[in-house]
Design a binder for these strands. Structure first.
Length: 201
DNA sequence: CACCAGGTTGACC
DNA sequence: GGTCAACATGGT
């Protein structure tokens, strides 16, 4: 996998993800971007910034109806508003949760409604800056292009086993995979894959 | 008009 | 264990 990383980095890097000013902005963005284009998330985050809601405490208390309007442009706005408030209440009451171990933190995040594996790992990696490789739809697609298939845990294990355990590397690699996916891996265009030569990575 | 986007959940088998 | 509809807006 390290060769895939090097190839992507040479073609497209560096991406310097995650685009956010603070760790809590990463958490909000991670929830809002679920099944949604980042462009729309940016608008919603700007709305929240204007209202001073990029912190756990105020976000946990904001009126649900108002929050729904502020994030409407990200779709699924009712459930995202409810989930954002729940998550914010949790972080407000547990401000030191990032000090826990990677695995503990991941399990805690997964227990929160609205945070599944990808969102949990995005928060672990980009907000808490702990080494967990994020697997998303682009990653699954890219792996499939390379003849690798599996569930979330299996794919994550492949990346984590074959890469040095390094937070900046995990961050940049995931960013590159997403960017690469947007450019080349849109369903019918996988023949343009710049990764596979000789059927090998 | 149809399809998709940096997914998650709860119901069901 | 896996599969599936529901959740909803905005862009191509």
């Amino acid at each position: 996998m390290i060769k895939v990383y090097e190839k992507l980095y040479c073609e497209l890097g560096p991406k310097n993800w995650w685009p956010a000013d603070t760790p809590y902005e990463v958490i909000i963005g991670a929830v809002l971007t679920q099944q949604t284009r980042w462009k729309n998330v940016e608008k919603a985050i700007l709305n929240l910034k204007v209202r001073g809601l990029i912190e756990a405490e105020p976000l946990s208390r904001v009126d649900t109806g108002e929050l729904e309007e502020l994030i409407r442009c990200t779709g699924f706005f009712r459930q995202k508003a409810r989930r954002l408030k729940n998550v914010s209440l949790f972080f407000h009451e547990n401000p030191d949760v990032f000090k826990k171990s990677t695995q503990e933190l991941r399990d805690i995040l997964l227990s929160l409604n609205g945070i599944g594996e990808e969102t949990a790992d995005s928060i672990v990696l980009y907000a808490a800056e702990k080494p967990k490789f994020v697997i998303d739809a682009y990653t699954k697609r890219m792996c499939k292009c390379m003849g690798i298939e599996g569930n979330y845990e299996e794919l994550q294990s492949i990346f984590e086993r074959s890469l040095p355990m390094d937070v900046p590397l995990y961050k940049e690699f995931h960013a590159l995979i997403v960017d690469y996916g947007k450019l080349f891996c849109g369903k019918k265009r996988c023949h343009e894959c710049i990764l596979v030569e000789n059927g090998k990575m």
